[in-house]
Structure formats: structure tokens, C-alpha cells
Design a protein around this nucleic acid. Sequence first.
DNA 1: CTAAAGTATAACGTAACGTTAGAGTCAACC
DNA 2: GGTTGACTCTAACGTTACGTTATACTTTAG
Lengths: 246, 246
Amino acid sequence: MKVKEVADLVGISVRTLHHYDAIGLLSPDGTTEAGYRLYSEDNLEMLQQILFFRELDFPLTKIKEMIHSPSFNRLEALELHRNMLLEKRSRLDNMIATIDKTIRHARGEIQMTTKEKFEGFDFSRNPYEQEARERWGNEAVDKANAKVGSMSKDEQEAMGKTMNGIYAKLAELRGGSPDSAEAQAAIKEWYDLLNQMGSYSLEAFKGLGQMYVDDERFTQSIDRFGDGLAKFMSDAMAVYVDTNRK
Amino acid sequence: MKVKEVADLVGISVRTLHHYDAIGLLSPDGTTEAGYRLYSEDNLEMLQQILFFRELDFPLTKIKEMIHSPSFNRLEALELHRNMLLEKRSRLDNMIATIDKTIRHARGEIQMTTKEKFEGFDFSRNPYEQEARERWGNEAVDKANAKVGSMSKDEQEAMGKTMNGIYAKLAELRGGSPDSAEAQAAIKEWYDLLNQMGSYSLEAFKGLGQMYVDDERFTQSIDRFGDGLAKFMSDAMAVYVDTNRK
DNA sequence: CTAAAGTATAACGTAACGTTAGAGTCAACC
DNA sequence: GGTTGACTCTAACGTTACGTTATACTTTAG
């Protein structure tokens, strides 16, 4: 699709699309030989994401960070969006309630405190922005995923198998102690594997382990290999880092 | 109240209040001898109005025009706001529905057309902006309403009765021709009456007649005195102007 | 084949504040 | 009563997300 088609479809200006291209927020997948921008179906999905975020008053730079973050997960983002929209609607409901009151106040039907008149107006901090930052703001995770993104399908598959192998091994060991030799060996494999993807410092590795228990998305996805695995890995990673530190 | 109190109360920045003062959108009623801004209760009510409009993405210049317009009616504005907020909420609901669909689509549960993906995103024209412009954008109407606003209750009532009398007369005549002597006499009364309030040029008077049929809010309120009265008056006004033009 | 509509880049303009910067003011505490 | 810290002022430049020309090339409809 060419610019104007897209613009008309989604109700934005051509200039806006140019702008998004210029700042690297959304560059079309293709161009004609004359240099015309050609937007793919994927580009449109991305655009939808962008507009959702924009609707929630995220600055474009942050939107760019988020959607380009390798750890960006479309489905998660959509669900977060949904929550934010619901949040926004409830603020709107507040405002409507406020205005109803104000109308009755203006008609002299009721009394109203000054504070009441501004209920629903304080948008100062959006709780979801924080969540979004935490969720997609981790550089280490980003790097790893970036690497995965740059790998071929086969490479990804191989990588995935290796990872699953390590997970499985650790899952078996998770009844025992995190500082056992086997556990530590497996963790070393894990560390080396991750380093193939993103060069972790020991500290970053420990931080990642912390995330395994702090961030329930990690916890959940890891615990699919065995209940309590995330905790076990986290502990083992901490031990590994502490014993290997000079 | 001093700036920061106000800012904190309503959840905006001090700079914003300074800005609103600078552009003449909202200047505090008073100042201390040191030059500190002091906001009155009235200022706060005005601020509430401004923020409501702002929430609906009206540019500040338009907000300024509106709230400073002599025909600005607080109650009407509030009711319009209410409608706009409801409108906005329904758009939000659309977006939420869209995102729900998108989520299910992303999960592979359903199919979705490209167009569907952007439902709820086209904010291009807000029907209420148009209404607001029409409502507060007409200088002639403004003048008249300003005059009415400056009249006492008794005067207003008297004026209303006179107007109703003319309406009633015209309603009786509306079966006949708009250029009949009686109709033209009644229209002259009408013209004179309006001129008591705002000094209409003949051209403006003709324009007003046009609005009676173009703007359905006029049409409706006039036709309450008799079906087709608006059209009849409009025609008669045109005739009046054309025959009285030098 | 030509006019109209669309597209490109480039660059300046704008709206609504944010962000210093420098200086005066006010209430409170030692 | 002096000083500190929270507020306040004006002034002026910075920023974001495009809008708006301006100029030139490309595509499409008649």
C-alpha cells in the first residue's frame, strides 16, 4: 500500500507517515523503483500498535523504544493497551460524573467543593507507564533477543534446543542445592550460552537471575519446565556470580 | 489562591498557568503587591472549563474565543462538554472492542480485515467541534445574546413575549405568500426588534434568514411555532431585504 | 499525450508548554 | 534578625509532533 492509502485507512496524514519514517519509528518494508513508500501488512500492524500507544499519550521516542525493543511482545503489549484504555475510560467516567455534578451545581441544585470540581483531571502519573518501562526497559534482555532476532530459523531452533536442554537439566536438579557442582556446571553453560547472544557482565547475569523471580513473566515461562525452577535458577545464578567474582 | 496551590489542585504545572496568563486565556483576578498571581473562585471555574475543552483537544486559541465569546453560556458549554465526553468514551469503547478483536486475532482465534484493525481511530472530524463553531462562531448571534444577557429578568421576559407574538403572527401567515403585506410588516417588526439587540445590517439579516433553514437547530426551535415557519421566515426575510435595498 | 492526482525531499513554521537562568519574596527557625 | 528553603516573578531558548509551503518527479485517467 502507498502512503495515502494507508493515511486514509487509518485517518492520519501523509506527513505523519513521512515523519514516522524520518525518525525511524515506522519505515515501510518496501519502496517502488521511483522511491515511493510501500507499506506491508506487517507495517500496518505496527502502525496500529503505534497509534494505540499514541492515543495513550506516549511520546514517540518511547513508543519507538518499546516497539523496537527485542523483548517487545505484541500480545502482551495489546493486553497492556487494553488495560490502559480501560483506565482511561474510567478517568473519562470520572470526568463525566464531575461534569454532571458541575451542571447541577451551575443550576444551583447542589453544593460543590473546589476540589470536587477537578476530580478526574489529575493525569500526572499513569501507573501503566511504569509497568511498560519495567517490562521493556531491560537492556540485557534486549540484547539477547536482538541476537535471536538476527539468527536464521535453523540457528534459532538449535539455540532453542540447547536452551531447553539446559532448562531440563536444571529442572532435574532443582530438588537439590543450587550450589551443587552439577547445578553450577549447568548454570555455567547457561551463562556461556547467553554470552553468545549478548555479552553479559557477571553483574548483569546476577541481575537477570533476580528478574527471574521478580518478574512473573519470567517466572511463569521458566516454571513451565518445572515448578520452582525460576527460583532455583535465580539462586544458582547468584551463587555462580558470587563464587566467580575475582 | 496562589499559582502553586491552583496547579497542585488541578494537576497542571505552574508554567501552564503562566502560559495561560501570557496568552490571555486565563488571567488571575488579582495580584499581591509583590506581583504574585492570585486566582479567584471564578478563575477556578473558568479553568475547569478550559481543561474540559483542552481534554477534548481544542486548541487554546479556540478555547479562548469560545469562553470569551459574549454568547458563551456556561451551562450550555457544560452540556456540550458532556456530550463530547460521551462521544469520546464511545470512541474509546470502539478502540477497546478493536483491541479485543486484535488480541484474539493475534492469538490466531479469528480473522480480521485491515480496515477493522483501525476502527475507532479516525478522529478526523469531531461532529461537536462543528456544532461549537456554529454555536459560538456567529457574531450576529453573539451580539444579540450579549444584549439579552445584559437585560434584566423583566426585560428579557418582555422581549420574549414580543418575539413570541411575532412568531405567532408569522405562523398564522405562513400558509400565504412571504411577500404579502402582512408578512412583510411582521418581518419588519422582527428586523426592528433584532436591531434593538444588535444592529443588524440588511445583509446580516438576510444571512440570518439563511441560517434559519441551514442550521437545523434554528429550524427546529422556530418550527415549534408551526411547521415550516423557519422556511417561511427565511423567504420573507430575503424578500424584505431585497425590496428594501437601495 | 496531457492534466490531475500522488509522491519525494527539504526546510521553515507552530502550538503548548518544558526547562533553565537570574532575581525578588515570604514564612519559619535558630 | 539573619538566613535558609520553598515560592514567585520575568525572560528566553528548547522540544515534540507534526503542519505548511516549495519544488520536482511519477503515475493514472481520459
